[in-house]
């Protein structure tokens, strides 16, 4: 009986349903918290890109508070999200971050590109959602990679918009940074998505 096809199919179906129910229950009960964590993670990355000072080990609630007090969001052009950093008390923004996203090698990559008020110089960059190969493309979130972008410009020496992510050792321009060795695909895709958003920024500015 245990070896009959009917029994095997029944067993598999029941086991499948029980496992699915357990997973659904877990997912439902944790959904709210996970969503809140993801949202806080996103806001945190806006704050990091804009270099808004925050407490170390700040909780999700504290981060949301800092965000609400210092940052204003505005949608321009075709759904381009601009986050203006206006420190409490000042009327002029001291920096602006723009949300970008694009296709990575493994999954979509999302991040923020923060610019100085001149709208040319990069203040910071963060990638808050990515699933690139750990140890290779996944290194786009590492400090050495994102730090390279600071003080670079989104236009080349002649004023043409665009950035380059070139293999290490190449002559660095004011708009180029080193690519990640062994992660050419990820580097190319990040370069592409940055250029797409840079083009849009130049258009709506």
């Amino acid at each position: 009986m245990k070896n009959s096809n009917a029994y095997t199919i029944m067993y598999a179906a029941i086991l499948g349903v029980v496992c699915a129910l357990l997973l659904t229950a877990t997912a439902e009960s944790t959904k709210e918290r996970i969503e809140a964590n993801k949202e806080a993670e996103k806001l945190k990355n806006v704050l990091v890109a804009l270099k808004v000072p925050t407490q170390e080990n700040a909780s999700s609630e504290q981060l949301i508070e800092v965000f609400n007090n210092n940052v204003q969001m505005e949608v321009k052009g075709e759904g381009l999200e601009f986050y203006y950093y206006k420190p409490e008390g000042s009327s002029e923004p001291v920096a602006v971050a723009v949300a970008f996203e694009g296709k990575g090698l493994q999954a979509r990559i999302k991040g923020f590109l923060a610019l100085e008020p001149d709208m040319k110089t990069i203040r910071g960059i963060t990638f808050y959602e990515q699933a690139e190969t750990p140890g290779l493309g996944g290194r786009i979130t590492e400090e050495w990679f994102v730090k390279q972008f600071e003080k670079k410009t989104i236009v080349d020496a002649d004023g043409n918009p665009g950035m380059e992510i070139k293999p290490g050792g190449a002559k660095a321009g004011i708009n180029s940074v080193d690519a990640i060795t062994a992660a050419t695909m990820t580097s190319d895709k990040v370069e592409y998505m940055l250029n797409v958003v840079i083009k849009k920024i130049v258009e709506v500015k």
Partner: peptide
């Protein structure tokens, strides 16, 4: 009760359930 033919698949299903629950928590 586990049919021998699909015992490994059944094991993986059980293991995966526990892992995902832990991951979600």
């Amino acid at each position: 009760h586990t049919p021998p033919r699909i015992r490994m698949i059944a094991e993986v299903a059980i293991i995966a359930t526990f892992v995902i629950i832990f991951d979600q928590i």
